[in-house]
Design a protein around this nucleic acid. Structure first.
Length: 426
RNA sequence: GGUGAGGUGGGUGAGAGGCUGAAACCACCAGUUUGCUAAACUGGCGUACGGGAAACUGUACCGCGGGUUCGAAUCCCGCCCUCACCGCCA
């Protein structure tokens, strides 16, 4: 959530920034400011009443100790009157606070100045493209056919035991999953990220901290009996590790990586977009998360982008980097880079990573702060995260782009992990 | 699943209706002193939201939410969580 102070100090700036998302935030911001003013007014009044009540209670106690019980008794009536008034004030104050908070939580993050204007995915800015279009030989097929031919993934049995969108990896397919996970984790830890193995279920507070709740609960699997949610990404448990904490400035940046299965309900999708590995209810992903000083978060973002790029280059995948336009960015992000790899047989780009700087937006919900070395006061930290990387679409591209008459050739970097250089189905 | 104990500041941990935003110790910060490091000593040291140009100041916060009381960290009720032991179990 945005910082109230920012809105109070520069409401016009906030409205202008949010306009980039193609939303007119003016009514919401103005309503918020009005609520805020009412609240502060009411708070002052409540607190002065409270101060009176406190003072009164103190003198009554004093009188009792001095043995002036009669005088004390007479003051009790006054105290009761204040208390009654205080009760009313407190009730309306709470109601106002609630409204103010609801209003504040509903505002998305302000896009960074570098975010391109635009409404739709078509308006995203292509920052850079790497590699060559793969040349496929005659008779190439999409990855779901390859997966079947080489017995890598059993979609039908996945449907039997769970449902659509829950693939079963088998043989060289399963081995490839494990190899990719380990390859990514190795590369991430070599780049200074601390490996974490997080819980796969999170509670409500965690879901709120990173922005999945309260609005996006429909996208998560909910275990109602225990009120837990299956994680949609490792970002949630990893970032929440530092919720409600004040870390020393000297500890920044905090760099973490985690592999986890990710669970997404993704209701309402159908057709070729969800064919094969394009979109799943359960998939594997290795995530990177950084907690950084505000002065350095954009340098850190670039570093993360360069790191993800190096992974794709090692895998030899033709990719492009997009800077998302205001209309296409996520609710919590200030600046997002998407990575897309070319899926040769489908002849389309597939998103495999999204690297974002959330600035203080998540930190404000998380109460994640660092203690400044300059004035020893706590300030909200910046949080960033990115996929490094999401497996299914990487697998789709690897299969499709490297297919040939003698099976599917794997990139060299994976061979030590898979133990085979070519997928042949045997 | 059963039984018991307990949740207090960055940490350990006292407090058991008013003198407690909270002892003491550790950690941390500043200073004094001493060739350096260390030690010793002195002082400081929670967070949030208000008010104020600032110095400063008000209120709240002892797991969360209610209640009793003139007054609650302290008493009562509900909830959550943690720990220990037993049972079951990878």
């Amino acid at each position: 959530m945005l910082q109230l102070n920012t809105i109070r100090q520069d409401a016009e700036g906030v409205i202008a920034a949010l306009a980039k998302r193609h939303i007119d935030a003016r009514p919401a911001v103005e309503a918020l400011l009005a609520l805020n003013e009412q609240r502060r007014h009411l708070q002052s009044e409540t607190e002065s009443q409270q101060a009176q009540a406190n003072a009164l209670a103190k003198s009554i106690g004093q009188l009792f100790r001095e043995g002036k019980a009669a005088e004390a008794e007479s003051m009790k009536a006054e105290s009761a009157a204040i208390k009654e008034r205080l009760g009313e004030l407190a009730t309306s104050l709470h109601a106002l606070e609630e409204k103010e908070r609801a209003q504040l939580i509903a505002l998305p993050n302000m896009p960074h100045a570098a975010v391109p204007a635009g409404k739709h995915a078509d308006d995203n800015e292509v920052v850079r493209t790497w590699g060559e279009l793969p040349q496929l030989s005659e008779g190439h097929v999409p990855h779901w056919e390859l997966a079947e031919r080489y017995k890598l993934i059993d979609f039908e049995r996945g449907v039997k035991i769970t449902g659509a969108g829950f693939p079963v990896y088998t043989g060289q397919g399963a081995r490839l999953q494990r190899a990719l996970i380990q390859f990514f984790l190795d590369r991430n830890t070599a780049a200074g990220y601390l490996e974490i193995q997080p819980p796969l279920f999170i509670n409500e507070a965690s879901g709120f901290g990173t922005g999945q709740l309260p609005d996006k609960e429909g996208q998560m699997y909910h275990i109602t009996e225990d009120n837990l949610f299956a994680i949609p990404t490792a970002e949630v448990p990893i970032t929440n590790l530092l919720r409600d904490e004040i870390v020393a400035q000297s500890e920044l940046p905090i760099k973490m990586t985690a592999y986890s299965p990710c669970f997404r309900r993704e209701a309402g999708s159908y057709g070729k977009d969800v064919r094969g590995l394009n979109r799943l209810h359960q998939f594997d992903k290795v995530e990177i998360v950084c907690v950084e000083h505000p002065d350095h978060s954009y340098t850190r973002l670039e570093e993360m982008v360069a790191h993800v790029a190096s992974l794709l280059e090692d895998l030899g995948l033709h990719y492009r980097i997009l800077r998302l336009c205001g209309g296409d960015m996520g609710f919590t992000s200030a600046l997002t880079y998407d990575f897309e790899v070319w899926s040769a047989a489908q002849a389309r780009w597939l998103e495999v990573s999204s690297v974002s700087n959330f600035e203080t937006f998540q930190a404000n919900r998380l109460k994640l702060r660092y203690r400044s070395e300059e004035d020893h006061k706590p300030y909200l930290a910046h949080t960033l995260n990115g996929s490094a990387l999401a497996l299914p679409r990487i697998v789709a591209a690897l299969l499709e782009n490297n297919q040939g008459p003698e099976g599917i050739r794997l990139p060299e970097v994976l061979v030590p992990y898979t133990g085979f250089a070519r997928i042949t189905g045997s």
